[in-house]
Design a protein around this nucleic acid. Structure first.
Lengths: 234, 234
DNA sequence: GTAATAAATGTAAAATATACATTTAATATG
DNA sequence: CATATTAAATGTATATTTTACATTTATTAC
């Protein structure tokens, strides 16, 4: 499958810095990861995270946003640095340190065409293909950190549309933690944080009765954070 | 104070990767940070974290251990990656990404002489001098992460000698969280984790009665982690 | 108007966290 | 050797949080 790639290996006499993006999305209550079919040698045709070398005149975060933009067309996406991967043999071609950054996007917002154009595909989190190099490790680390961060930040809101219902929010957390939650207890908990604003609209796409839409109140969230509170949900 | 360093600035045509170490230690119940008086231009004479460029044939973690060893003489120290700092202008001399790693060491183990030789000094955490570049930021980030991690890992044990007393352990957590803890509740909590082994020895350095020494049981800790438990203390 | 469906809600029991004061072991001192 | 001194060690009652669990409600489709 993978052709002989020996030609592409080169002497490691220079240090490179790359950034790789772990792109999470939510679709129909499932947490997904965006992976790309690699188009260049070596390892052409293999599944991979999307990444790029960091430019000399470019901040690290800017590089992450650029990669994300080039790959998806999206801008100003929620993105957070995970950690850097620096085993000396992690990349057979270069001596390369990769700074992994993870992004959360709303799949509904997403221009599906751009995905196709880039040979990209959304995979469900528990059904991922093998990825090149140490990208599998990056994904596992990112998942762990996503779960961890979701305990203390309303990070999940990045994955939902601006207006969302409580059942949607619950599905999101169930997807992140891979565990069913009790709807009564879940509501109690999220309301207790005082960061949801109930709207006068309903979403009737999933039931006859319809579920009220809410939006997130960032001001109250900021207050909550300053008061040292833990946004622990699952 | 700082002399004119213009001579040292150079064209940024190459990417460098460095690692900087945030070295925490515990001494007399106080959490301290090891900082170094910089000996080379630019910014000679200023306080700084200790760091080094990462070598081409060196894993990132190995680079961290090397820096730590060169600076303190210690080996196999607990060390954890914090994050990478990559603003394009963060270092006026080079285009340099720095991977920050933080270490926890037992100041008693420590060869005080080596510290002096390197122009290093232990500062109390709430009385730090200004550091060069973005090192202040690194320290603040590291402190936040130390506090965060201490909630879920018995990270604090790295800062204590192999044998320690409960009051010592409590002082450590009080230093990390900068807050007084109730001795009865603290004991209940740490014992509930089942990771302490009581020894038949006492430490009588702080009281006539003496306090029993304990050691940490890594096996039980591993079990605890696998069962998904939270090692939350403060 | 009846059936169907997901949304919305409350309460009691269990577990956990908090607040708080006394006794104990060992040494030092007169 | 009796007493004073000191930090170590311990238990309990209360408040808070978490968990478990079943019914009613609003709306649409037939």
């Amino acid at each position: 499958m993978t052709q002989n790639t020996t030609d592409f290996y080169q002497v490691k006499e220079k240090m490179y810095v790359a950034t790789d993006c772990i792109i999470f999305g939510l679709h129909e209550g499932k947490l997904k990861l965006l992976v790309f079919k690699r188009k260049v040698e070596p390892l052409s045709g293999e599944w991979s995270l999307i990444g790029s070398f960091v430019r000399l005149d470019e901040d690290l975060e800017v590089a992450g946003q650029r990669v994300l933009h080039e790959a998806t067309g999206l801008e100003n996406v929620f993105m957070q640095q995970l950690k850097s991967y620096g085993k000396k043999d992690r990349d057979p071609g270069y001596r390369c340190i990769s700074v992994a950054q993870y992004a959360l996007i709303r799949i509904d917002d997403y221009n599906e065409q751009v995905v196709e154009e880039h040979g990209a595909k959304w995979f469900e989190i528990d059904d991922l293909p093998a990825l090149i190099l140490d990208h599998d490790l990056m994904v596992q680390d990112a998942l762990r950190q996503l779960r961890q961060n979701a305990r203390y930040q309303p990070i999940g809101f990045e994955l939902l549309p601006e207006k969302f219902t409580i059942p949607q929010l619950q599905l999101l957390y169930e997807a992140i933690y891979q565990k069913e939650l009790d709807p009564r207890n879940f509501r109690k908990k999220v309301f207790s944080f005082n960061v949801l604003e109930k709207l006068d609209e309903k979403d009737k796409s999933t039931s006859k009765r319809g579920a009220f839409l809410y939006k997130f109140n960032y001001e109250n969230y900021q207050k909550l954070l300053k008061s040292g509170y833990n946004f622990e949900i699952a």
